[in-house]
Nucleic acid binder design. Structure first.
Lengths: 219, 219
DNA sequence: TCACCGCTGTCAGCTTGCTGTCAGGACGGC
DNA sequence: GCCGTCCTGACAGCAAGCTGACAGCGGTGA
């Protein structure tokens, strides 16, 4: 689960990164509007946390340009003063949710989770695909009802596949989402994780389409 | 137990947060009337502490609008001058209790507890999970019926875990809850607290899911 | 003012289990 | 059959988490 935090206040930015990381996100940060726009337009994020009060390009302008370019990732907007006007402006610009400062980190995390869930087209905390079910609250995994113990990394992989049921996810994309672009792992690391997961989950859960990527069996 | 504190004086707000947090509440703060109205109208709180002297939208107006929208959470009203008129106005606007400034924090906490109990938010003052039971009134802890002495910090940790029985709580979130966002402790401080608690409570009470966080064993 | 005491953060060393790497094999496409 | 992609078991490095010891701190009582 990959997130972009756009926030120029270093302390708040650090807090957001901490909270989201704790919630299982891999977080990148920028405090500059132009930079944020470029990242949001070229990279694939599962969530963007966007502060409106930015130097350079304004947060609302960034959001509008993303939407104009057809970028549809869920965006959670932060604003210094939670006035009604700002809220309306944000929603009109294409924000998915809105959080007035000051706020508690727990609330940020809760809303972030809700947004990602909503974006994945899943209403509740339970996501299912074929024999597999993910409880995004408990971070629990079950196959045909029987719970299976998975590690944090394995869980993040499953959650990502669950979000993209409509297509096979190429290894490059999975690698990028699980680790950073920066620290490169051997491609084999991913295969090892997949193998371990298959051993735990049994056959018929994680499928491979040669040349395209991995997917969750939905039948 | 989730509380909203509406108070524009930063120092008093900080005191209220401290007192309520110590009493096991998870507290959010705002100093703005519009913001308070929005939060109270969209979020679910077990308690609201409302200062009448607010910039922007007046406290009484906020309260009236909540009640008009059918929001029934218990509201404890604070006012600068404890005049007879204000008291009546507050009660008529739908306040559940009333506290004139200046007041002792202990009194605030006592009334807050009484309100929450009366509202039946959490049926009793007793919360249980597996072998563990918390008495939120007297801040007492017991394992399989036998009382155990825990410190204030330890109690807050247990209370927080008790509030989030449905999921493992990541260390980052616990750190943020126990200490402020501002003063950073070594991550190890938390582990020390956990270790001390485990020694007091015995095995099978606090569990760990490596990479996810801590939780109370419910089985 | 001083000694005492309980609470709590820091430190160092340790255990545990996660995870990347490697080597070799299986499989599918051409 | 050949080549590239993918799979898998073994293994070792490493980081998350655990624990006991210790010291600083604030509160309390003499």
């Amino acid at each position: 689960m990959r997130a972009l935090a756009v926030e120029d206040d270093t302390r708040i930015a650090a807090d957001i990164v901490g909270a989201l990381t704790g919630a299982g996100f891999r977080v990148e940060v920028t405090g500059d509007g132009e930079d944020a726009w470029f990242l949001g337009d070229t990279e694939d994020y599962d969530l963007v946390v966007l502060d409106l009060g930015l130097p350079g390009l304004d947060g609302l302008a960034v959001l509008k340009r993303w939407r104009a370019n057809g970028r549809a990732m869920p965006v959670l907007v932060l604003t210094a003063r939670g006035t009604w006007q700002e809220r309306v402006e944000g929603i009109e610009a294409g924000a998915d949710d809105y959080l007035p400062k000051p706020f508690r980190m727990e609330e940020l995390v809760a809303r972030a989770r809700a947004l990602v869930r909503r974006a994945g087209g899943h209403a509740g905390a339970l996501q299912e695909a074929g024999d597999l079910s993910l409880d995004t609250n408990r971070m629990g995994v079950a196959v045909r009802g029987t719970p299976v113990h998975v590690t944090a990394l394995e869980y993040r992989l499953l959650a990502y596949l669950m979000q993209h049921l409509d297509r096979p996810v190429p290894p490059s994309e999975l690698l990028e989402h699980l680790y950073g672009d920066d620290d490169a792992r051997e491609a084999n690391a991913l295969e090892a994780v997949i193998a371990r997961l298959r051993r735990k989950l049994g056959q018929g859960v994680i499928g491979t389409r040669r040349g395209f990527g991995y997917f969750l069996e939905t039948a």
